[in-house]
Design a protein around this nucleic acid. Structure first.
Length: 419
DNA sequence: TCTGGGGTCCTAGGACCC
DNA sequence: TCTGGGGTCCTAGGACCC
């Protein structure tokens, strides 16, 4: 057997992944949950899935994406907790602060995980293992949360090794050892290989990453196209193709903003459905305004009782961030595509194709848009103060625009002082 | 088992243009 | 008069991730 040789130069990347993040955050708010079987995501009889499960609950086969009702059967004594996105966002920001104090090149990959470019930091932090333990300790001290850290010469290796390090561990794959590390793992451990790809590979007799690495690259290319070629590189531990191949910390801006709602009970009530579309449009519009994005494409998502799902999109001649325009498009798409009487399970509204500025077609229209924007900004502030349900600006389409913006931008009685 | 909500990326076909 | 080829935009669906 040939001795594995160390490459002359290799990158050092950390993947930091918080352990059972949502559960751990809930434990900070309610320490009595510690050590128990906890399921975050909703109540035991609700329509929905598990967002996160404590390690105790996982012993009973509970895992994320499992229907809540199934989780309740598998683990009847589990404590079911509703999710608190604001809490997770807040903790995520604390995590981010710890990381940025440690390395200038940090990229949050999701709310609870990040990549750190650590190449060339030895003088500051010492060798990789020492640096990782320092970070691990600091994270616990400043957030009271456990994390696991994977260290590797690529994002892929860092990511896969952090998963192997769980819970609360650190794992370094020494440069040159990548293929040896991956070989005994299930192909499913490779990020991007899901249920479908896994079963395709199983059909070819490929179960482990080592089986994959033995295959000809060209064969993978023929069978699975561009993805197959990337897969061949991944089996060797390379960041082949796509997002993985990008610099750590490069600026990635949002490409779409969406909100959706699943009814507790399916409904075919047109009024109820359109009211939901209104609410979702308002939520999307609000986020666009907060991000200062203008969207050209509005998409409707419609899921029927039998789970069959369609999406219908329309691209506008000019970008918008106005609740009313978003709603109008969503409603038109809905009326055109919903088969009246068919029970609906889910509705969604998505905005995409962002532009920095809306194109103003003529001055009059531009001025109106500006006044609308002012009114909506005021409504956003009211919602901050009094809650999401307090303002239904675009819902009150009866009054004219002018009546609502003079003196009383919100259209609500007596609360215009809120600005 | 009876399947959330928020995203990203890829594929593929048709329209349209040169 | 039996039909090119490439590029871009738009739409729909699907795999995948946390």
């Amino acid at each position: 057997m040939a001795a594995s040789h160390q490459p002359a130069f290799s990158r050092t990347i950390f993947h930091v992944d918080m352990d059972a993040f949502f559960v751990s955050v809930e434990e900070l708010y309610d320490p009595s949950l510690k050590g128990k079987a906890v399921v975050v995501g909703g109540q035991r009889h609700e329509r929905g899935v598990v967002s996160a499960a404590s390690y105790e609950a996982r012993k009973f086969g509970v895992h994320s994406a499992l229907p809540l009702r199934t989780a309740a059967k598998l683990c009847p004594h589990a404590i079911f907790v509703n999710g608190h996105p604001e809490r997770y966002r807040e903790c995520s920001e604390k995590v981010y602060k710890v990381l940025t104090a440690f390395s200038p090149q940090v990229e949050m990959a999701s709310i609870d995980e990040a990549y750190l470019e650590m190449t060339g930091t030895a003088r500051l932090h010492g060798p990789p293992m020492k640096a990782a333990h320092k970070l691990h300790h600091r994270m616990k001290e400043e957030t009271q949360l456990n994390c696991s850290i994977g260290i590797g010469s690529s994002r892929l290796i860092a990511k896969v090794s952090s998963a192997q390090a769980k819970p609360n561990g650190v794992l370094w794959i020494v440069p040159g050892e990548e293929a040896k590390f991956l070989a005994p793992l299930d192909v499913r451990e490779i990020p991007g290989v899901g249920k479908v790809m896994e079963s395709h590979l199983h059909a070819l007799g490929i179960k482990k990453v080592g089986d994959l690495a033995r295959l000809e690259e060209s064969e993978l290319g023929e069978r699975f196209g561009k993805w197959g070629l990337a897969l061949a590189g991944k089996a060797r531990g390379e960041d082949a193709g796509g997002w993985f191949d990008t610099e750590v910390g490069a600026d990635i801006s949002a490409k779409s903003i969406s909100h959706e709602h699943t009814y507790n009970e399916d409904t075919a009530d047109a009024n109820q459905l359109e009211a939901t579309l209104m609410r979702l449009s308002e939520m999307v519009g609000r986020r666009l305004r907060e991000a200062n994005f203008y969207a050209r494409t509005i998409q409707l998502k419609l899921r029927y009782k039998d789970f069959s799902t369609i999406t219908r999109a329309h691209t506008l001649p000019a970008a918008t961030q106005l609740d009313g325009e978003i709603f109008e498009q969503a409603r038109t798409l809905f009326r055109r595509n919903w088969k009246a009487g068919r029970e609906v399970r889910l509705l969604g509204v998505q905005a995409s194709s962002f532009e920095a500025q809306a194109e103003q077609i003529d001055l009059l229209e531009g001025g109106q848009q500006q006044r609308w924007k002012n009114a909506l900004a005021a409504a956003d502030r009211l919602r901050d103060k009094f809650g999401e349900s307090s303002v239904k600006l675009a819902g009150g389409m009866r009054g004219t625009f002018r009546e609502r913006t003079h003196e009383n931008p919100s259209g609500l009685p007596g609360k215009s002082k809120a600005r």
